[in-house]
Amino acid sequence: MNPIIKFIVELQDVTNLLWRALKGLRKRPRYFREIMIQMDEIGVGSLAIVALTGFFTGGVLIIQAYPTLAYYGAQSNAGQGVATSLIRELGPVLSALIVAGRVGSAISAELGSMVVSQQIDAMRALGTSPVRKLVTPRVAALVVTLPLLTIAADICGLIGGGLVAQQMYGLDVNTYISSVRTGTNIDDVLGGLIKPLVFGFLIGLISCHKGLTTTGGTVGVGRSTTQAVVASSIAVIISDFFLAKILQSALKTTLF
């Protein structure tokens, strides 16, 4: 199939899945317990690696930025640089990429295995909608937990940046905190929380779609898992570009 037509067909399938997943929230049974289990798996399960990633990203931002800032005598603004980069961009994007790798692959592999072992057919034969039972809880859990994980990554990143600034460059902690506070505004925080909402949707939908469309036995499970991670990561990075532009225009006009 022509790659463009293939892309359009996939887009149609994902949109259709999104619509059915949303309908799954409206109709009974709603599988709240399943959503809680997924939130635990996705949210609590990813907290440590997301926090670690945030911490070292904050640290490396200071290592890269501090010497240049010091050159211009602006080292007291180091906290602002870390906060802006982390809260606006790196926190949401890195958390989403980590979650796409860890959770997206797990979702796709799990659903793919269920497809090849006929468990999805069995579920439908038993009168249950796999979209409502499997897709809706996973997407809902991702949409709720990814913003929370991003907050965790942001906080750990700020702590990491502060520690590196103090221990390696002798920057006063109060100066760092003050710089973070003055350099962060409501735009940054709102934008930094809206992005992971969208990323959660994308990762959940793409991973579930790739898993549910698995063909070709166990080899197919591996293939769809790889595709889920690659497609989710690319979707996160591309959508981040457009979201950054949209949020920049929208938030400035509404709030300031």
């Binding site: 468990q119 057919d121 069995a122 439908r124 034969a125 009168g127």
Partner: peptide
């Protein structure tokens, strides 16, 4: 439609080739 089929499926039992048990 799928919703009506769900109602019909509840009256039908299906035994799969490999069992298709939920792991």
């Amino acid at each position: 439609e799928d919703m009506d089929l769900m109602r019909i499926r509840k009256r039908i039992g299906m035994v799969f080739q490999e069992g298709a048990l939920f792991d």
